[in-house]
Design a protein around this nucleic acid. Structure first.
Lengths: 257, 257
DNA sequence: CGTGCAGTCTGGTATATACCAGTTAAATTT
DNA sequence: AAATTTAACTGGTATATACCAGACTGCACG
């Protein structure tokens, strides 16, 4: 009974790289050379396992590796697809992500997920230099290229300064609404970027599975008088994000801790 | 036969969340409340599988979920540990990451991985506005907190402007070397940040397993005359990074695409 | 003509098992 | 007491199997 599988030297040759990584590499190459194109469907786990003569689990691991890399995404029970190209977001050039995307002929679609009139919690109060409990407008939007979700954005505005804001059509650049109707234009901003695990509600909106990673971007936008008037948080599909910025070394920086 | 009578045994109650996510959540909670502290070892796959009465593979998936989130890291064949706190990096405040880290009492250690005298490829030539083939100095360093790797940095300098640069001790702030000995101080910079899959050599240095994600940060540093004199690329363990920046809306932005 | 209903496809979850190669600490020998 | 062996760990890789539920395709029926 010793010889259960006659696996023998199947993988103990010194080409020691794990089989699933070899397969992942093979597929990666096919994407690189264009044999598999954006949004194209990949071979299924089962067909890969036949093709490479490995178990389904091994084929799966190869695909999962490509998924965490961001090269590939999985649409539950429909298959896996080649991820579309990254979107570039210049955070300095705060002249609205929407309009720059549109001029660079990115097929951008916006969906309003939720709007709310609420009050400032401690953090928002501190940020806007308002008393805790001041009225705040909040709205969450989901951004797509085509039908591919890219990021979720939630923005908070002090309600007093922007009356009837939610009356406007939020499927456009809010920066432009703020400028046009409320004379509030961005002058400076503080930005924070980090990678973290996705939360279940976010995962649903972005149609990624739980226990993936996303990139979170928070920004405070200030007007020429350095008064903060907008706080925003974006949660990006990690593989879709590329942020750039132009930094100017400040004469004296006085934000500490 | 509308009423499909399902067996109500074991765990198919409508709390339908996958078992491995429940377990991951349990551990996550224990980290959050401090029952498991930074750098502390987690229970092994096998002991978790007994504790929760699941197969080892399911326990493993729970731990892997925490790993991709960045809450936990795995040291090959030694166990899994709670990740240390993030490091904050203010990219605007270009006054050297090293010195700011040291004032904020972060236990920073630098290891020189490689130094090289090479020549400019197309990209570097274009960047530094030099002819292709001009001499370039390159060096790669690995940054740690304690014995925990954080990021790899490779920097490129035009050799003509910085003679004998590699003679200096590279285990300190290079920004300061540049300022002190070569009178080159940062005035502006262009920064790019994105998430991507780790490469095998990087994975080794950062001691993470292949098919994880990292954050890549590239920056071009210019002096007061807007002449670029340093190009750097950092590859961060995703869970360790948090970038912040202060942006100023430029009167007219004339960089396109 | 569409409507509904199989049957087949997909990925997602879960279990059980096996072996490998480093790590570590205890046991043993020198 | 120091050096060395050993044995009990660890995570990593891999296979085989099973069932689920949603998505899709095509066929039969009204």
């Amino acid at each position: 009974m010793l010889d259960k599988h006659r696996s023998r030297d199947s993988q103990d040759d010194p080409s020691s790289r794990p089989r699933f990584l070899q397969i992942a590499g093979e597929i990666r190459r096919q994407i690189a050379i264009g044999r598999l194109k954006e949004q194209e469907i990949l071979p299924s786990e089962r067909s890969l396992s036949e093709q490479y003569d490995v178990s389904r689990m091994t084929a799966r691991r190869a695909l999962e590796a490509l998924e965490t890399e961001g090269l590939v995404y999985s649409a539950d029970r429909r298959g896996r697809f080649v991820s579309p190209q990254r979107l570039k977001y210049n955070v300095s050039n705060m002249v609205s992500f929407v309009s720059t995307a549109q001029t660079n002929d990115v097929d951008l679609r916006i969906e309003v997920v939720e709007t709310a009139a609420t009050v400032a919690d401690r953090r928002l109060a501190e940020l806007f230099e308002l008393p805790k409990g001041s009225p705040i407008i909040a709205y969450t939007r989901l951004f797509y290229t085509g039908d591919h979700p890219i990021f979720i954005e939630t923005e908070y505005l002090p309600a007093d300064r922007f009356p009837d804001f939610l009356q406007h059509d939020l499927c456009q650049s809010t920066t432009q609404i703020l400028e046009k109707y409320y004379d509030a234009s961005a002058s400076t901003g503080d930005i924070m970027i980090r990678m973290r695990g996705v939360q279940t509600d976010e995962a649903q909106l972005l149609s990624i599975s739980a226990s993936h990673t996303v990139i979170e971007l928070e920004q405070v936008i200030r007007d020429a008088a350095r008064v903060p008037f907008c706080f925003g948080r974006q949660v990006w599909r990690g593989e879709m994000a590329e942020f750039s910025a132009h930094a100017i070394v400040s004469p004296q920086s006085f934000d500490k801790e």
